[in-house]
Design a protein around this nucleic acid. Sequence first.
DNA 1: ATGTGC
Length: 480
Amino acid sequence: MSVKVEQIDACRWRLPREGAMRTDGLVFASRQMMAFLQQEQALEQVRNVATLPGIVGPSIGMPDIHWGYGFPIGGVAAFDADEGVVSPGGVGYDINCGVRLLRTDLEVSEVRPHLKQLADALYRNVPSGVGSHRKDLKLSVEQERKVLVRGARWAVEQGFGRPEDLEHIEEQGTIAGADPELVSDRALERGRNQLGTLGSGNHFLEVDLVEEIGDEQAAAALGLFSGQVVVTIHTGSRGFGYQVCDDYLRTMLHAARKYGIELPDRQLCCAPLSSPEGKQYLAAMACAANFAFTNRQLITAWVRESFEQVLGKGPAELRMSLIYDVCHNIAKWETHQFEGKKRRLCVHRKGATRAFPPGHPDTPAAYRHVGQPVLIPGDMGRYSYVLVGTQGAFEETFGSTCHGAGRVLSRHAAKKQARGHNVEAELAAQGIHIRAASRATVAEEIPEAYKDVMEVVGVVQQAGIGKIVARLKPLAVIKG
DNA sequence: ATGTGC
């Protein structure tokens, strides 16, 4: 199906309002990316989102956009508090999937001799793969409820990580308004032994090298330098968030009918933000978001332990502070200036990252002069990026930018292409050490399965909705 | 993404 697109400039495309659309679509892409996107269903999904009640501004697609459940992955949509809706499909199954970046004071030359040992320790200490869990951490439902309300703060209180970590997490690691009473027993049961696990698919734990600095001032503010070793953690809310999403999709199908919301696709099911169903979903979503923050916080503690064990150095020498933790699957209440008026909006970011500008009060004090850190994973063979948010993003995309590379091959196609290759050995020959619970996952995640993230962040920077700070190269990768 | 497929 071909979707009508109008080129605005070198990196912007308009999907003009027509039919049931209440607003335009706006997609950020190079000409070459757009040629690829026109064969995809993602653009149709950008148009579908534009039909939802109370949408404010355009239905936005980032350069890493691809087909998702109802809403595209790589999509941003803001909704009015009174007229608008909230949709589980606009958040995604993996609620508060996100990325965190830890710094170290280590130079790559100090780590290289211990890299295999480090990869082994991380793989041992951080459970990965479908259905994985740590035998020494099974929560009671009572403890789990505290996790859902308190988020990363709970983990710090239990001795996982440091109080100052919280300052460098979106919302300080706790989304307000979480209500465990609105979460099913099934979700609670699935979450109970999955806290502190990496999961599978594109989730990973990576030791990276800071390969190139793009902005010296911002890099200095973030504590980054060329030749430095850093650690990236990419995971979400595991089976808990999946179950919350699944449960509420059912609720929202009924709600959409009840409130007379016409849907071009049932997967866009939603409820008014002002309705009981809408509020209930947001309170349950907040539980899952807090679960994910806690998950990344526990893994952080085990990463620090692993480095200390393998390198025989203490915390004061390693200086493994948390640079930042971003959510890339979430809906949030935010204040934005729109058409000259300050408005309270519910911003859905599904496979999109918040990118608040310099000076924004929600950016941590240490980074306020450079902007909010934005963490963009690429693929395990090439590189990832660190950016900062910009005024351009705040004005044009409700303070949002891309979240990753975006797939070019389906999981099935990637597996087919990996056939006959020893992916681990080929990456090891390039100095990248993989430890994975499943060989099939590695095949699905081959670098060729993804767009070149350099092109994605190139578009983002050209459009002014993000500024490149540093490029990271993988050294060791732990996968599910 | 997901105790991965109705």
